[in-house]
Structure formats: structure tokens, C-alpha cells
Computed example of a mutant assay.
Amino acid sequence: MSPTTSSGKISVALVDDHALFREGLREILESTADLVIAGEAGNSSDAVRVVCDTRPDVVLLDVEIPGDDVLETVTRIRTLSPSTRIIILSMYDGPHLLTRLLAAGISGYLLKSIHRHELLAAVRGVYEDPGRVVLAVSRASLAQVEGPQPGVLTDKEKEILQLAAQALSNLQIARRLGLAEATVKRHMRNIFVKLNAVSRIDAVNKAMAASLIPAQSRRESD
């Protein structure tokens, strides 16, 4: 379908690896007279291709889309189509990742628990005002974005880092904890930001030095 310039409607690309969720988004957006679906994708490479082919006004992008890191995907979309507004959809607040995504130029970060009228308002809002940023996150998450507290790891982040200290890969950690690999990657990114770490080993060393994880974790892999 044609983008806004030819149809008079706001064109939206949907990027999520769950077909049922995309179908729900499509039904919500197509129920309104001013929105049109420009294209759909289920992974990062297809998302970039859809944006390149259609130049949509807005992209609704799942934060855990399979393929490239979400920050890399955002950067590629922004490079290919600077006028396209990117709204991230997520199951989690992820304050530290949110901070980096905002720096990368996203126009919105919405939890998937929002109501349809909030989604529609966000899409219209970022389209009508390119300078607007729409956030639908918890107050606690917003507080951390406004004033982050580096070094404070969540229980899940500590658990993941302890497994990383045993030289387990992201995929192995994901299988051990029953998580998606993309979720583990997201947690690792948050850990790096909080600890100001440049590598997994650096993060482990800093966490052990600060007694955030037990020092014996590394010895378990020996």
C-alpha cells in the first residue's frame, strides 16, 4: 500500500515475530480511517527491507525482534529513512535499554499492555509532531531513565551474569533459564550499561569486585 504522501493516510510498518500479535495490531490500525499498513516483517533484516521499500511514516518495532540487536536495527532504519518515526513495543520497561534507544532516536516506547486508544494516540502523536516522544512505561522505569543508578543489578541480571561467569553463551543461558536468547541479550546490554563494562569478562570482574555476584561463580567453570 502507498505511504502517506500518495494516500493521505499515515502509513505504518509492523515488525514483530509473532504473527498473531501482528494480526491484532493490523486489525486495530485498519479499523481507523487515517491509518494504513505499509508492510510487515518478522525479523530485523526483513524490517529494514520493508522500510527501504515503503518508507513508512511510523514503524512499530518489537524490542526483541529476531536477528540483529534492536539498537542496530533502529540505527539502520534511521539511516535509510530518517523521516520514519520508530515506536518500540515491549513486554518490559527496560530503563537502561530505553535510555540507549532514546539516544538512538526512537519516537516512542510502549509496553504491550497498553490499550488500543493509547497505541493509536501514540502513532498519530509522533507523526503529527516529529519532535514528540511518547513513553508508556512505569514511573519506576521513568525515574531510572531520568536519573539512572549504575551498578544496581536486578535479581535476574545477577542470575544471568553468574551463568556468564561460568562461560555459558547467551543461548546456553537462555536454555538454562527458560528465556528467549533475545531476552538474555537485552539483560546483558543492561548489565554492560549499569556496570560501565566493555565486555562480558569486564562485567563479571566488576560485579564480583562489588560483591554483586559471588566470586566462586567463575571457579565453577574451571
Rank of each mutant, 00 (worst) to 15 (best):
V193L: 13
G178I: 08
A122M: 05
R132F: 12
A165C: 14
P56R: 00
V59A: 04
H117S: 11
H117E: 11
V184R: 01
P130F: 10
A33W: 13
A103C: 07
D17W: 05
I65K: 03
I213P: 07
E40Q: 14
G131K: 07
P150R: 10
I88C: 03
V59Y: 04
V126F: 09
V152I: 15
T99S: 09
K194D: 10
A41H: 10
T75Y: 07
L20S: 13
N43M: 11
G24P: 08
L120M: 01
T75D: 14
K112I: 06
M208L: 12
H18C: 13
A38P: 00
R26L: 12
I37E: 01
T154G: 15
S141V: 12
R218C: 09
I65Y: 02
G105A: 02
L29K: 02
D62E: 06
V133Q: 06
A136L: 09
A19Y: 11
D62C: 02
D68W: 06
Y109M: 02
G131Q: 00
I28N: 08
V126S: 07
I10L: 11
G147Y: 04
L89G: 01
R100M: 13
L102A: 12
E40Y: 02
S31T: 11
Q162I: 09
A41S: 07
E159P: 09
S113E: 06
T183R: 07
G151T: 08
R186M: 14
L142D: 08
S45D: 13
A13W: 03
G42W: 05
R76A: 06
N43S: 14
T5P: 04
L60V: 08
D69Y: 01
L177P: 01
V204F: 06
H115G: 09
D17F: 11
P130A: 12
D129M: 10
V126T: 05
E157K: 04
L102H: 05
N196L: 10
L60S: 00
V145I: 15
D16Y: 03
L110C: 02
I37T: 04
L135I: 11
S221K: 14
A33F: 12
